[in-house]
Amino acid sequence: MADDPKTNEHANPDEPKRWLDDKRNVNKIVYGLYALSALLLVIDPFIHKHGPFEIEHWWGFYGIYGFVGCVFLVLAAKELRKLVMRSEDYYDR
């Protein structure tokens, strides 16, 4: 199914460095993300919410829920791995 292997070339040691290859630039993106997260939480009290549920009106509910939800998702999935993970050829043996 794969393409002609000749086209599947490998990294050339002389190839030019990309912007993302520099760790400092990656850090810039990460700091940008921190700043954006903080900004979105700071402006939260100024956003009028119309929903019927009390919890929606708590400060930063959506952001905190998203963060906690994702941490829970990943930690739970790691536990799930202990239960369901088998070798790649499990069904072929």
Binding site: Y62, G63, F67, G69, C70
Partner: peptide, 12 residues
């Protein structure tokens, strides 16, 4: 609210 949900998920 959608951006809050998504950006803080990315943060996680």
């Amino acid at each position: 609210t959608q951006l809050q949900l998504l950006v803080l998920s990315a943060l996680a």
